[in-house]
Amino acid sequence: MEVWVSIIISVCAASTPLLLAATGELVVERSGVLNLGVEGMMIIGAVTGFSVAQVTGNPYLGALAAVAAGAFFSLLFAFLTLTLVANQVATGLALTILGLGLSGMIGEGFVGQPGIKMQALEIPLLSDIPVFGKLLFGQDLIFYLSIALVFGVSWFLFRTRAGLMLRSVGDSHTSAHALGINVIRIRYLAVLFGGACSGLAGAYLSLVYVPQWVEGMTAGRGWIALALVVFASWRPARLLVGAYLFGAVTIAQFHAQATGIAIPAQFLTSLPYIATIVVLVLIARNRRATIINTPASLGKPFVPDH
């Protein structure tokens, strides 16, 4: 039993960064913007979180700084695509390339240093309950935040007026604009939120999951988060399923490597990526569901006529 508890906790740890980044990107895409820079914002969050935690000795300050850094970095993307209507795909790629380069430079002095791990919250008494205590009440703060965020975002998008406005901007920016909604402002806010979430996702990697600074440590997780949004067909609750499925594949793959199964480690390492492709194909085959849920203005530039 103890073994299973620790396996499930490690699945949670592998899933949390994916879930966080995907939740942020879901809001961005619901507003009609496709930000492919998730990987770049994540790695900026990872290096900021790690370095601030090293300097201050406090992982929570590190996580906060990562949120701010991710949001600030996404502002670059927002300015280019929303104010200057640059191509969203290309700008997202630019964000990723710049993020990977910049993080390598910032983190150069931190390579190989032992990190400061954000400790799990042990809620007295409750976390002592056998099996469920540790799972439900003995994890780190960001894990709880990631779960709360999914439900918060779901509530925001489908139960609030502001959420309705955001979705309307994503579905038809011209109609929303005609109704007097400030399309560009809403999209700016959505992109900033996405950046903050990606930043936190990165900090989770360098403060909880690994916890160390390794160059390029996001290893494609930002891209998997993007795929998860498609998998979830832009519904926050389904992100939970997707993220945990991928977390489970990642952990299963680690355990298979550890048992010395006669499958090459490289094949196991590439499993999450292959799984992503398979999932994308399966989802795309169900065209009706995809078409109904895809924000209709996704990736399309908008220039307001003043």
Partner: peptide, 20 residues
């Protein structure tokens, strides 16, 4: 640091897209 090269390249793409 040779990472500066990647930063250069990333910035270059940003400026190219902005100038477009």
């Amino acid at each position: 640091s040779d990472r500066a090269t990647r930063v250069f390249q990333g910035m270059l793409l940003f400026f190219v897209l902005a100038c477009d």
